[in-house]
């Protein structure tokens, strides 16, 4: 029994190999991009718009408002990253309704890749917004003693992100597979429905956590900076 789509390898050449995870990811990418391109090709700015455009607008504005809700004032700067993360994970998880489909998010490699993306995006946006010095100083807050803890926190939360998503999706697929061998009728469908819900929830959690991390990096905690000002004045 294969736990991960990584184990289904189509082509391999030394370090390089094309496995099911990559193929499925490309398929999802193609689906998302084609759908978006087809729908946005005929965008209207009138009062009456097509239902597909309406759905896309609802999705985009929904993501925008979520980002804003977390505390980022200019959501259009982050929607490319956060929105894509959510749409990719959600699509990958929702497609489990199709038989023989294995979600790429059920592969630890994919979730690690996403977590690494977040891990890299946090300093990227932080430095972009606050400058490199200010951003790096935030690791010394409240005192320099906190530096190792801050660093550990960065790494551990990235690991947690990766493992959380992988564990949830993989376990969902595992449960369905195991149940199919025990009670092949009805019950697996219920678990699959539950798996859909879990997939959406995980997509939301992953995106929201990424947003929170980015927000924390972008916005300096006001109390700490006040303290710092006082210290420098002394």
């Amino acid at each position: 029994m294969k736990l991960s789509p990584d184990q289904t390898i189509f082509w391999s050449y030394g370090f390089f190999n094309i496995n099911l995870t990559l193929v499925t990811t490309w398929g999802i990418m193609l689906l998302l991009v084609l759908t978006s391109a087809i729908i946005t090709r005929k965008l209207k700015t009138d009062m009456h718009i097509s239902r597909w455009q309406c759905i896309l607008e609802m999705v985009v504005t929904g993501i925008n408002s979520e980002i804003k809700g977390v505390g980022l004032d200019s959501p259009q700067l982050y929607i490319g990253f956060i929105g894509t993360m959510f749409l990719f994970i959600a699509t990958a998880n929702v497609l489990i309704v199709f038989p023989y489909y294995q979600a790429p998010t059920g592969s630890l490699s994919t979730t690690t890749a996403l977590a690494i993306s977040v891990f890299l995006a946090v300093p990227f946006f932080g430095i972009k917004q606050r400058g490199i010095g200010t951003y790096l100083k935030s690791y010394l807050q409240p005192t320099f003693i906190m530096l190792p803890f801050n660093l550990i926190s960065e790494l551990s939360r990235t690991l947690a992100l990766a493992v959380r998503l992988f564990g949830n999706i993989m376990s969902g697929g595992m449960i369905v597979a195991i149940l199919l061998s025990i009670t092949p009728f009805i019950f697996p469908i219920v678990m699959q429905a539950l798996g859909l819900l879990i997939g959406m929830v995980q997509a939301y959690i992953f995106s929201i956590l990424a947003t929170v991390y980015i927000a924390a990096a972008v916005q300096a905690p006001p109390k700490n900076s006040d303290k710092k000002d006082l210290v420098t004045k002394k």
């Binding site: 190999n17 998302l32 990719f88 592969s107 690690t112 890749a113």
Partner: peptide
């Protein structure tokens, strides 16, 4: 963890970000 897949997925993700 298949590190080639990880790198490929990071790239895939970045490409997807750009395309979307």
């Amino acid at each position: 963890i298949d590190w080639f897949t990880v790198i490929a997925q990071v790239l895939n993700f970045l490409i997807l970000v750009g395309l979307l």
